[in-house]
């Protein structure tokens, strides 16, 4: 298994990022003033620190994602053998995915996939 192309790819990706940042540093004019340095909030005056507790509502989705991430991992060794092993392998994976689909049905039915709507007045900080 040759990993040299992947290493080259990694190197190229890192090089592009650094080249872009370096070009920006070298070419961009640097004349800051207080108005420019404020956080851009679509025209609103930013109030308070941005480093607050931040509820990324996708936490539950991320938990579900990890389970299906592991499922995807099992798909790799299955996929490279599928052509050779044919219907038998296909049925095995169908059973595997069917069992996991129960999980998806469960979270769907339990409404875990729904966006948690903030109630009015929740914005005021409790910290």
């Amino acid at each position: 298994m040759n990993f040299v192309p992947i290493l080259i790819f990694l190197g190229a990706a890192a090089a592009v990022v650094f080249a872009a940042l370096l070009t920006n540093r070298l070419l961009a004019p640097h004349k800051p003033n207080p108005a420019k340095l404020t956080t851009y909030e679509c025209g609103e005056e930013p109030v308070g620190s941005p480093w607050i507790r931040f509820n990324t509502r996708f936490y539950v989705i991320a938990l579900i994602f990890i389970v299906f991430d592991v499922e995807v991992l099992f798909l790799f060794p299955w996929a490279v053998n599928l052509k050779q092993m044919g219907m038998f392998a296909w049925v095995e994976m169908a059973v595997f995915i069917a069992i996991l689909s129960i999980g998806l049905a469960y979270v769907w039915a339990k409404r875990d996939l729904e966006w948690i709507k903030p109630k009015p007045g929740w914005v005021k900080s409790k910290d």
Binding site: V60, L63, I64, V67, V70, E71, F74, E92, V95, F96, I97, I99, L100, I102, G103, Y106, V107, K110, D112
Partner: peptide
């Protein structure tokens, strides 16, 4: 074990939820 792994994953998912 491969098929049992899916049951384990299912249990993990339901437990985590």
């Amino acid at each position: 074990p491969f098929e049992v792994a899916s049951v384990l994953l299912l249990a993990a998912l339901i437990g985590a939820m």
